[in-house]
Design a protein around this nucleic acid. Sequence first.
DNA 1: CAAATGACTAATAAACATTATTGGTCAAAA
DNA 2: TTTTGACCAATAATGTTTATTAGTCATTTG
Lengths: 199, 199
Amino acid sequence: MKEKTRRKILEVAASLFAQYGFHKTSMDEIARVARKAKGSLYYHFTSKEELFTEVVSQEFEKLKAELVKIVESDKLNPIEKTTSFLLKRNQMLATSPNYHETLKADLYERFEFLDTLRKKHDEWEKGQMEKILNEGIEKGYYRDMGDVKIILDVFYMILKGLEIPFFIQKQYIALRPHLKGMVGIMLRGIAASPEKLLG
Amino acid sequence: MKEKTRRKILEVAASLFAQYGFHKTSMDEIARVARKAKGSLYYHFTSKEELFTEVVSQEFEKLKAELVKIVESDKLNPIEKTTSFLLKRNQMLATSPNYHETLKADLYERFEFLDTLRKKHDEWEKGQMEKILNEGIEKGYYRDMGDVKIILDVFYMILKGLEIPFFIQKQYIALRPHLKGMVGIMLRGIAASPEKLLG
DNA sequence: CAAATGACTAATAAACATTATTGGTCAAAA
DNA sequence: TTTTGACCAATAATGTTTATTAGTCATTTG
């Protein structure tokens, strides 16, 4: 019973926050749509911020589940893994409206209450990408780069840079055709040799 | 005489727009600081928008002057030119506060009156980079990429993506150390062979 | 006892009214 | 031709009033 209410609240909140954003969605409205008393929301979540944090966290969990499949696949070589990872990341974030809300907040006000969650997620993601890169180096697909973390930082600087144009300025659809080209250049930039790139 | 007043107005406007932004800078204030009547401003510039457009245009002209030196240098090979171009671009835009104002406007409201100028500038820049890339291909530094414009589009997608983090979110200083690494990966990604990259 | 409710409230946001400022104009002066 | 300074409708800013919100908690329900 308890879980059912909690889930209902989360489901309604995710939808309303996605439509109206954090500020324009009231707890009264969430309660009304979920057909619960507002006090019930506060029984399960200590604050509006905690509720939103959980909503964003769920978006991250979905992304993680997909990325893990790629990292742990034994059907893909490291090049294919890297490519899939980068493309899937963008594709899934494109359909994570509450994550976009956090990007907007970076521009207008800063949701400090989300810092921990986002930082942990970023670190997790980088960790997964690092696994792929290390696998690629061991198997001779990528050259020995010394400190892999520098490559990681560069990759993520690029990816993070694209988030505002893609998701806030709604350019993802228009720019998506260039993503493969970009990934191709990036991977060739770290490849052991051109032949390892399969065209 | 006429030119002197015009120049004074531009100089004061550039400074005040840079400090307070387009909206928070009034024509009364520009007139006061320039020690001119407001009507005099309107004699030289038909509107506040035209004045600001000229201010931004002057920032672009400074950038162009620097980039042209690189493109036309006969002391730099195409790799060095590309590197210098990309780094200089970022360096100069980092110190172009009125250009930052246009990026902010992209987020909050859109300065349509600047579209033509910005579009022309972007095209000019891409044209210069295209020259360098073509020179690199002819001299065997870069591989034959088929349509160079696709590489250009990818490069500029990355560069444009970085503008908000760098110049609006004030991350340029923190991320600058990664710029060389990024440029290195990008260039290796289009190089004819690793040896052409001089380490 | 855990889960849910609904009335309550200080704080905050929104709406409204009033005042000040602004971009732009133009006749007159230099 | 260039510059000025008074003018004004439109817009922004400010102050006041009203409405809404996040959060609380005693009570009820299951």
